[in-house]
């Protein structure tokens, strides 16, 4: 499931991983290392929420 950064809006998509951060495609959000941070704003992993639990972010 996609997870969205509450600070900057970046969406972590497991099907894409985080190539810049060295996270291979297919890595579930839960398996990201604890020190992993949002590539766009540097926020910590606990600042992410599952995409569908936000009641729909404005687009």
């Amino acid at each position: 499931m996609k997870h969205v950064c509450l600070v900057c809006g970046y969406a972590y998509d497991p099907s894409k991983g985080d190539p810049i951060g060295g996270i291979p495609a297919g890595t579930p959000f839960e398996d990201l290392p604890e020190g992993w941070t949002c590539p766009e704003c540097g926020a910590a992993k606990e600042m992410f929420e599952p995409e569908d639990s936000q009641g729909g972010a404005p687009t």
Binding site: L6, M47, Q54, G55, G56
Partner: peptide, 14 residues
């Protein structure tokens, strides 16, 4: 920032 998530969720969802 412990309250941040609760604040964002309230703002986003109403």
């Amino acid at each position: 920032l412990d309250e941040r998530k609760a604040l964002v969720v309230s703002s986003m969802t109403g």
